[in-house]
Design a protein around this nucleic acid. Structure first.
Lengths: 193, 193
DNA sequence: ACAGCCATGTAACTTGTTACATGATTTT
DNA sequence: AAAATCATGTAACAAGTTACATGGCTGT
């Protein structure tokens, strides 16, 4: 619902047409989440179907201007009033992956963790660079989004470390096997019952 | 794709029927993400359509047992090999909300932040309690998922603090207005061009 | 004239999700 | 016998997403 609500909130600031909404949305997220223009229209069409927005007369240049309705305002107000709940959040793919991997036989979980950490660190560096470059001029909204991504990536990295140490401890309990195993990060070669 | 891949990975450990998959999935995530049984079947049907799984003969009790195919194994192996990429991750609703709110006029962003922190802290406590209770017997997968949720919630809380201080700084720059404003957390009353 | 952007829209598809229908088996 | 649980499935929808069609306008 994030996009729908976001566009709705933008319309709450005043009528606008499709391209303006796309631009406004991307400006605030600093292009972190580029929005396919088609999606703006499908989202608007669905919002109109649900009575949250309405088409105004086309403007002087023939552009289709949308306006928020009373029902739409109510929904925006609610969106701002109510916190985002954990239950609403989508299932986390990485967590599912590790949860399944850790229980499965013949899957090198450590390799998964390490690969993922590589990716996470790369992302983190990229974000940090972006922040350094943007810090001067960028507007508050974009900076906050950026920090959000950074905080998230850091949490992910920390969690991966945590997983690794837990895995190491578990492996330790299993005592000594494979005396001098060269690292073999090949994971998931299937199996049978 | 998380559920689909998860079920596929479970099938990679051996054939199973719908209810078994639901149980296996929920066992690993400790019931954090309960799975509607109907979804198991729709997911399986779609995976079958895509040639990733196949129905075996029904077992002795007439249950429909699914088996992973070669193509399915390839996909699971890939899933484990490749890291979860940031670009794949869904847009974060909270970030969008604050990004829009912070730029909009007549929206009390501080109120939003505080409400959200309340929710986040409540979640965090709940998770911590779960962890304390579970720590004895629970299996590794469930503990890791739990920690993931905790790390995430902590990052969110930290980010909210960060947002608040940024907002305070910005408000400071605007200098003194509204000498003794009673807090008016009414948000988003619309506007016109 | 042609390339390229602005602008609107639509058709088609994916994943996730739930509500419901239908039986069989088990428990009370 | 009734209630609960196991088990399979389907219909229908939401939200996100993209590829494509279409036309106007602008600069070269």
């Amino acid at each position: 619902m994030a996009i729908r609500q976001g566009l709705l909130a933008l319309l709450d600031e005043g009528p606008a047409y499709g391209y303006q909404l796309k631009a406004a949305f991307e400006e605030r997220t600093g292009g972190t989440w580029p929005l396919n223009i088609g999606q703006v229209y499908t989202t608007l069409a669905r919002a109109e179907r649900d009575g949250l927005v309405a088409q105004l007369e086309t403007d002087d240049d023939g552009r289709v201007v949308y306006e928020i309705t009373a029902a739409g305002r109510t929904e925006v107000a609610q969106w701002f009033q109510e916190p985002v709940r954990r239950e609403t959040a989508p299932r986390d793919e990485l967590a599912i992956k590790l949860a399944v991997a850790v229980t499965a036989p013949d899957v090198d979980v450590t390799a998964i963790v390490q690969t993922q950490r590589g990716e996470t660190m790369r992302t983190l560096q990229q974000l940090t660079r972006l922040k350094r470059d943007a810090d001067e001029d960028a507007d508050l909204a974009w900076l906050l989004v950026l920090d959000r991504l950074i905080f998230d990536a850091e949490a992910e990295a920390r969690w991966l470390d945590h997983c690794e140490s837990r895995l190491a401890r578990k492996a330790g309990e299993k005592a000594v096997r494979r005396p001098a195993s060269g690292r073999s990060p090949r994971a998931a070669q299937g199996s049978a019952r």
